[in-house]
Design a protein around this nucleic acid. Structure first.
Lengths: 218, 218
DNA sequence: TCGCCTCGGTGACAATGTCACCGACGGTTG
DNA sequence: CAACCGTCGGTGACATTGTCACCGAGGCGA
C-alpha cells in the first residue's frame, strides 16, 4: 500500500525517499459513516489525508443550531482543523464521516519532519490551508449577504446525486445553510409550487435543473 | 534595529543565529493610515509582522456590502491572508492600515528558510494561523446565530476608546457587523432611549457601560 | 394495535434587510 | 453672507428571515 501518494496531485512530485518516509510512518485508517473524527474535546492527533469518502466539518452553537462549514473529499486533507485544534481547544467545530472513510494518518512528528525536509510537502500543506480559508470566506460572504432561497437552490444543485436526488431532511438542509427548518420548509414549498422540485419525506428530487440553475445564478 | 523580535512572544526563544537571519534579511516598512496593504489584485509579497498600529481585514461583496473579518494588532502577523492570497487570487478580502503602521517585512524565501530551520518559527506561524481561523469561526458563528443588537453592544464595548467614545459613522458600524446602516441607526436609537449611549454625528459615547455589558452577555 | 418518535406543515409574530426619500449638518465657494 | 453640495442619519413601508407553539401524518417497534 504505497501508491496512495499518487492520488494527491500536490504530492506526486515527492522524492522517492520522502515517499517512503510518508508511507512507512503513516498508517491507513478506516472509519464507518457517522463517526465523529474530531470535535470539542477530541483533538485529532494525526493529519488525515482522505483516500476515499467524505468528511463534513460543521460548527455547533450554544443554542444548538448548526452550520456546515465545508467538506473534505477524497484526495484532500484535514490540515486546517487539525492545526487549529492543536492550538485552540475551546471552540466547537467538529468533523464527521459522512460516508465510510479511508484515510492515511500522519502523526504530528512525521508531519513536522516532512515540512522541514520537503518543499513539495510544504507547498501541499499551505495550498490546502489556502483552499480551506477561501472556503470559509465564501461561507461568510454567503450567510452575510446572500438570500436563503438562492443559497438553497445552489445547495440542492451541489448535493444532488446523479439521479437528481437529495436525500436529506429539511432539518439537515437547514444545517447546511445555518438557518431554521421552517425556513427551508417554506422555500421548498415555493420551489415545488414552481415545479422545480418534488419533495417527499427525507428527500428532494430535482425536476427542473435548468430553472433551478437560472435561479441560483442570481 | 534588531530587538523587534522580542516584541513577539512566540519568537523570543529563537536562536541567536536565526534572529540574525530574520533581522538581516527583513526590513522595516512604515505605511500611513488608510493604505490598502493587500487586496484584490494586490497580493502581498512579504509576510508582515506588525510592530505598531492596526490592520483591518475585511471582505467586500459584489453588491458592495462589506464586513470586517478581524484586526491584526501590534505584535501579531498577517500570515493567513498572505499565504491565502499566494494560492488563490480570486477572492475579495483586503487589508487596510487603520492607523499609521510599522511592520517587519519578511520576504517569501526567508519565510521558507525560517520554516525549515526553526521549530520555534514553525510553531509561531501555525499558532498565528490557528488564532486567525478561530477568529473566522467566531465571525461565522456570530453572523449566523447571534442577534444584531447583542453584537452591536459587544462591538461598541470592544471599539470604545479609554474615554468611552466610538468615532465611527453608522455605516462604518454596519460594516463591522456585516449588516445595513438603517439597522444600526434603529438599534442605536433604542440604546439611546435606554440611556446606555449618547449618539452624535460620527460618534457614539458609552454612557452606561455596565448596562451595555449586561446586555452584551446574552 | 398501541405508543412513540421523527418529519414536516402552519399561523402568528418578532427581527432584520431593502428601498425610496428626506432633512440636517458641515464645508466650500461665489 | 448666501448658495451649493456631499455626507450623515432618520423614517415609513414593505419583504425576507427567524422564532415559537402546536399539530397531524408516517414509520417503527413492543
Amino acid at each position: 500500500m504505497s501508491d496512495w501518494i499518487d492520488q494527491f496531485p500536490g504530492l506526486s512530485r515527492l522524492d522517492p525517499e520522502l515517499r517512503h518516509t510518508l508511507t512507512d510512518r503513516s498508517r491507513i485508517v478506516d472509519v464507518p459513516a457517522g463517526t465523529v473524527i474530531f470535535g470539542p474535546g477530541k483533538a485529532p492527533e494525526n493529519l488525515l489525508l482522505l483516500l476515499s469518502g467524505v468528511v463534513r466539518v460543521q460548527q455547533v452553537s450554544e443554542s444548538g443550531r448548526e452550520i456546515v462549514l465545508y467538506r473534505v473529499h477524497a484526495h484532500e486533507s484535514c490540515v486546517l482543523t487539525t492545526a487549529c485544534l492543536l492550538a485552540y481547544e475551546d471552540y466547537s467545530a467538529e468533523g464527521i464521516a459522512e460516508t465510510d472513510v479511508s484515510a492515511a494518518a500522519i502523526p504530528r512528528n512525521v508531519f513536522e519532519d516532512m515540512i522541514v525536509r520537503s518543499s513539495v510537502f510544504r507547498s501541499f500543506v499551505f495550498t490546502a490551508y489556502s483552499k480551506r480559508i477561501a472556503d470559509l470566506f465564501m461561507v461568510i460572504e454567503e450567510i452575510a449577504f446572500q438570500r436563503v432561497d438562492i443559497r438553497l437552490a445552489q445547495k440542492l444543485l451541489e448535493l444532488q446525486s446523479n439521479s437528481g436526488d437529495v436525500q436529506l431532511t429539511h432539518q439537515q438542509l437547514a444545517t447546511e445553510l445555518g438557518t431554521a427548518r421552517e425556513v427551508i420548509s417554506r422555500q421548498l414549498q415555493e420551489f415545488q409550487r414552481r415545479g422545480w422540485i418534488a419533495a417527499t419525506r427525507g428527500r428532494v428530487a430535482v425536476r427542473d435543473q435548468a430553472a433551478l440553475e437560472a435561479f441560483a445564478a442570481h
